[in-house]
Structure formats: structure tokens, C-alpha cells
Design a protein around this nucleic acid. Structure first.
Length: 356
DNA sequence: CATCCGTGGCA
DNA sequence: TTGCCAAGGAT
């Protein structure tokens, strides 16, 4: 694909494939800038099948810029519950205030204005403007990095800035004035359906004749993502449901911990041999309450980022004393827990105690 | 440039 | 069970 005639044929073949196979999927209907923004933020590091479940509900609740701008951050986080990367929701809430203040409540349509919004980088800005407004901006993300690497038979490390630069340059050379949004979506669709991580289906690929890795290399071995492996750390934790009547103590996670902005049950680092007496002391130190702990009623294993957490869930009885006055600590009625944004594990615990 | 941030699906 | 990965961005 050195010359523009090659690239032109490549675009035509890819768009033909796109038109025949995937054009009418419901989640890909033409959307406004606002809706494309919402879906692109949701799609960051998140699979389409997951977004399909959340997007309609979010749009029903926040159909336009003014509605989202008038909502509280807590409302937005509640709608985001279960989707992960909750920073995205808080950044959207911040961005929509900027849209009201600086853009008269209308989602901006220039690259510089869009990328200046919190939570939007080069990929997302280009995706929004090409898909919703047919502007010729290139895209580079997981799928296209794989597609581009294979088309070019590029075996450099794509996680380095040099590798990224190489792939962005190629993306720029591909995009044209004709249907840039469809082209970008076709490239990503190709990556997710045909040019897959494992066992790419090259024989079904509409552009295999343009693919150097298919002709002379090993598509499956690309892209080269370097050699750094994830280093996992096992954590032992305890969560405590402090209950008095129909109310329980909940805690708002702070800026420097997991699930920042979400509610959780008081949680402590623990050890396999930690005694319930010691845990009760920790609860006292943090909440000011004097408690006694029952046997753990449930153990939950979950992974978050690089941590693998084993979480023992306790219920406290014989609660006495007064809950420490603090912005991030309060009593909540058990039925009220449904209105709070919680992490998946927090929600599991909430459901468990609601069942009793 | 490395690390952080969630969750679920897959082999 | 374990590791890998997904329509990334901010720091």
C-alpha cells in the first residue's frame, strides 16, 4: 500500500465488505455528536456487547446535553454502575459542564475543542467527529493497531511511542474525504470480526491481498506488544457490614483508592490468620463504633487492575457507640443501597444482606 | 515512559 | 485456575 491507488482500492474493498455485512447493526445507527460521544466513552477498553446493554439505558436517562449537565455526578455514576473505569463517568460529568459553559450547551464539532474535553484523547476525538460528522480524522486503538500492524507486517513494538507514531502515520494515510466515519468503523469491525487476536480468518478477509503479513509473514504473531507481563499481587481483605436495625454503615471511596466516588462497605486489609478481634479493633478505629463480629458469611474473589483480592465478608452485631462524623461515612437504609453507586463486589454484598 | 483505572469473557 | 484482552486517557 505504498501508493494512493492501492489505498483507494483498499478503501473500496473494505467499505463494500462493511456495507454487505455489518451496516445495519442497531448499535451503529447514525447518531448525534452527543450520543456518539457517550458511546465512544463507554467503548473505551470495553467490549461492544457490554456497551449495548448500558448505552440505551444511559441515553433514556440522559437524552441530551442539558439533561446530563443538570444531573448530579452521583446520578451519572449510578448509571455507570457495573461498567467499570468509573473515572470515565466523572470526566463526562465534568466535560458536560464545559460544554454548557463554553459551547452554549452544544457538543463542539472541531477537533481542538473536542480533544480539550476531559476524558477525550486523540482516538476518541477522531472517532466522534468521523463517525458523527464525517470529518476525515484517523483512528488508532486496539483493533486498528492489530489491523495496521498486519497490513504493514510491522513487527516493531507497538506499545512504544515510536511504534504508535508509525501506526498513526499509517492511519493518516488511509483516511480520506469519502465516508471517513464508515471507513473507521469498518477498520475496527474488521479487527474484531476477521483480523482477530488469535486465529485470524484471513481467507474471509476482504483486504487480504493488501496484507503484507498475510503474504509474507505470520499475521497471528502481530502486533508485537513487547515483553512486559502483568505482575499480579494477591490481597487479603475483609469487608464489614455494620448493621443496626434496617440500617448499615457505608463508606465513600476516596480519590486515591479503588472505586473512587463509589460507595462500599468498610473494607480492611487482612491476613489469612487475622483474628476477628483485631478486625473489630480496626473497625472501631475507623468508624468510632464498638462492634462484635460473627463468622464471615461469604468469601468473594475478584480481580481489579493488577490485584487479585480475596474478600471475607463479615456482619457485625452488638453495635454500640456513635458513628464518627465524616463526609465519607454514613448510615444507609438497606433498601436505599439500591440508589447508591457501588462496585460489583459492593453490590454483591448489598444483595446478600437484602436477601436475609 | 510506566502505571493506574473495572469488569467480563475466553481458551 | 490463570493469564490475556477489550472502540484509552491521564498522570
Amino acid at each position: 500500500m505504498q501508493n494512493s491507488a492501492d489505498r483507494s482500492r483498499f478503501r473500496r474493498r473494505l467499505l463494500d465488505w462493511f456495507d454487505q455485512n455489518a451496516r445495519d447493526l442497531p448499535w451503529r445507527r447514525k447518531k448525534s455528536l452527543y450520543r456518539t460521544w457517550v458511546s465512544e466513552i463507554m467503548l473505551q477498553q470495553t467490549q461492544v456487547v457490554t456497551v449495548v446493554e448500558f448505552f440505551p439505558r444511559f441515553i433514556r436517562r440522559f437524552p441530551d446535553v442539558p439533561t446530563l449537565a443538570n444531573a448530579s455526578e452521583a446520578d451519572v455514576l449510578k448509571q455507570w454502575e457495573g461498567l467499570g473505569y468509573y473515572r470515565r463517568a466523572r470526566q463526562m460529568h465534568a466535560a458536560v459542564q464545559v460544554i454548557v459553559d463554553r459551547h452554549e450547551g452544544k457538543f463542539p464539532d472541531t477537533f481542538d475543542e473536542v480533544i480539550a474535553l476531559p476524558g477525550i484523547g486523540r482516538y476518541t476525538a477522531g472517532a466522534i467527529l468521523s463517525i458523527a460528522d464525517d470529518q476525515p480524522w484517523p483512528v488508532l486503538e486496539g483493533n486498528t493497531a492489530r489491523v495496521y500492524s498486519r497490513l504493514l507486517d510491522f513487527d516493531g513494538d507497538v506499545t512504544t511511542s515510536a511504534g504508535q507514531q508509525e501506526l498513526w502515520s499509517f492511519a493518516e494515510s488511509l483516511v480520506s474525504r469519502s465516508r471517513p466515519g464508515d471507513l473507521n468503523q469498518a477498520l475496527m469491525e474488521l479487527g474484531s470480526e476477521i483480523c482477530t487476536v488469535r486465529a485470524p480468518r484471513c481467507l474471509e478477509c476482504p483486504v487480504s491481498r493488501h496484507c503484507l503479513a498475510f503474504q509474507q509473514g505470520d499475521p497471528q504473531s502481530l502486533p508485537n506488544k513487547g515483553t512486559r507481563g502483568m505482575v499480579y499481587e494477591d490481597l487479603q481483605q475483609a469487608a464489614v457490614v455494620i448493621r443496626r436495625g434496617t440500617r448499615v454503615v457505608v463508606r465513600l471511596c476516596g480519590p486515591n483508592e479503588h472505586w473512587s466516588g463509589l460507595w462500599d462497605f468498610p473494607r480492611f486489609t487482612s491476613t489469612p490468620s487475622a483474628t476477628r478481634a483485631k478486625l473489630a479493633r480496626q473497625v472501631g478505629d475507623r468508624t468510632g463504633l464498638s462492634i462484635r463480629l460473627d463468622q464471615p458469611f461469604r468469601q468473594i474473589r475478584h480481580a481489579v487492575t493488577r490485584f487479585r483480592i480475596t474478600l471475607d465478608c463479615y456482619e457485625a452485631t452488638d453495635v454500640s457507640g456513635r458513628l464518627r462524623r465524616s463526609k465519607d461515612l454514613r448510615w444507609a437504609d438497606i433498601n436505599e443501597l439500591d440508589d447508591l453507586a457501588m462496585s460489583v463486589t459492593g453490590r454483591k454484598i448489598a444483595r446478600a444482606i437484602q436477601k436475609r
